[in-house]
């Protein structure tokens, strides 16, 4: 059963002014429970607009969003409930921190849910553990932390609501390679341990290849592809035509194949490449 479904979503920014801009057009997707979805697309392709529809921050001009089979706009007054079930981490989420301590900031979401103090405490500590925040950092002001730590506090703030669906908009933007790896690993771990659905918007094909099971490709507000990760990355030419690309490793393997080396296809991560190349090198060395 699909946890999120959209039917013919349309949205326009600043309708009726010279700045009018169609953001998304006719989006119909189904996302299954427990899936890990990657969304890729050019800047301005409507990725961020789409994810803001999924938790009811934006109300579609036309079309519907279903959460567990129910139209989320059926009772507009209860839209807050939807936001607790579909957690959204914005781009540069560290800009939204405001509390005196990181602990209180992570507790902001759970306390808005009206949980009791013990439950809030348990959730905050659990979320902090997921993103690897040490106990002493929790008692510090979020403004004293480093960039990567701030980002982790902000992500924990949404994880602490324990949403059924966790959406992250460019969670690794502006981080160093080590920070990227850490955060992606933590998100993956969170998904496996909770069995929740995770949607990650990213510009990095490497990030998507590493964690996403399915990939949604957007172009000019429309869905270009929505398929299993290998199937999407095997269409390198089409991706190139809309200004996207495949992971660098995949490109290397395509060139190797074009030059007549029998390395096979479907290689999207460095680990896969290692596993594929090592036996070949060994064979070559023996011969």
């Amino acid at each position: 059963m699909s946890v999120i479904e959209t039917r013919n979503l349309n949205y326009t920014y600043s309708p009726g002014t010279p700045f009018r801009r169609d953001a998304i057009k006719d989006i119909s997707i189904k996302i299954d429970n427990g899936d890990f979805i990657g969304i890729i697309g050019h800047t301005g392709s409507g990725k961020s607009t789409l994810v803001q529809h999924l938790n009811g921050l934006l109300r579609p001009a036309s079309g519907q969003v279903f959460l567990n089979g129910k139209d989320i706009w059926e009772h507009p007054k209860k839209i807050r409930e939807v936001r607790f079930q579909v957690g959204l981490v914005f781009q540069y989420p560290e800009h939204q921190l405001f509390e005196e301590t990181s602990y209180k900031d992570i507790a902001f979401g759970p306390s808005n849910m009206g949980l009791d103090a013990d439950e809030i405490d348990a959730r905050v500590r659990r979320a902090a553990k997921f993103v690897g925040l040490r106990e002493e950092l929790l008692q510090k002001s979020p403004f004293e932390l480093s960039g990567g730590e701030k980002r982790r506090v902000a992500i924990a703030g949404v994880m602490a609501m324990q949403p059924q669906v966790l959406i992250l908009d460019e969670p690794t933007a502006g981080l160093d390679p080590k920070g990227r790896d850490t955060i992606l690993g933590q998100i993956k771990e969170y998904q496996q341990e909770n069995g929740s659905t995770v949607i990650v918007v990213s510009h990095s094909m490497e990030d998507i290849a590493r964690c996403a099971k399915k990939v949604l490709v957007m172009n000019r507000g429309r869905i270009e592809m929505f398929d299993q990760t290998p199937a999407v990355f095997s269409r390198a030419d089409e991706l190139g035509a809309i200004g996207l690309s495949v992971p660098a490793v995949t490109r290397i393997f395509m060139i190797l194949r074009a030059r007549g080396y029998d390395v096979g296809d479907n290689v999207y991560t460095v680990e896969q490449a290692r596993d594929r190349l090592l036996p070949l090198l060994k064979k070559g060395g023996d011969a």
Partner: peptide, 13 residues
């Protein structure tokens, strides 16, 4: 607008 959205996503009323 962005900060309001972010806090609303965390259930701010």
């Amino acid at each position: 607008d962005k900060i309001m959205s972010a806090q609303k996503a965390r259930g701010a009323d």
